[in-house]
């Protein structure tokens, strides 16, 4: 199953978009305008389509800032600490998110794809 193609189908239907608008680099919230309710619906659709267990806070990086604060409080290096919370993200991607976190919600289609791929292997 092609994760990107299936995800595109779900997102285009859910958010009433053109299929061509979506690439792995697309921001879900900043560019596609997904709201919290849309993300909940997306989580359910992903469970249905890919047959994986979906943890909303993990797949949508909801507690990313909180984990950054935790790392600071523990006096630990932020990138490896946060990467342990999101094992489906590369250290490079975590670094990129931290760098741009002040520019708005950083969740991209490729992050959701990573979660699906990671948990599909587990299943």
């Amino acid at each position: 199953m092609n994760i990107l193609e299936e995800l595109k189908k779900i997102l285009t239907e859910l958010l009433d978009l053109d299929n061509g608008d979506i690439t792995p680099e697309t921001y879900l919230i900043q560019e596609l305008g997904a709201e919290s309710i849309d993300l909940l619906e997306l989580a359910v659709a992903i469970n249905s389509c890919f047959k994986i267990k979906v943890k909303d806070e993990e797949i949508f990086l909801t507690r990313f800032r909180l984990h950054l604060t935790e790392a600071e409080q523990r006096k630990e290096d932020a990138v490896p600490y946060v990467a342990t919370k999101y094992p489906f993200l590369t250290a490079q991607r975590v670094e990129e998110i931290i760098k741009n976190i002040g520019k708005g919600p950083q969740l991209k289609v490729k992050d959701v794809m990573g979660y699906i791929a990671f948990h599909s292997k587990e299943a």
Partner: peptide, 9 residues
């Protein structure tokens, strides 16, 4: 039909 941690269809 399907579910996540906090949403249920």
């Amino acid at each position: 039909v399907s579910r996540s941690d906090s949403a249920f269809q």
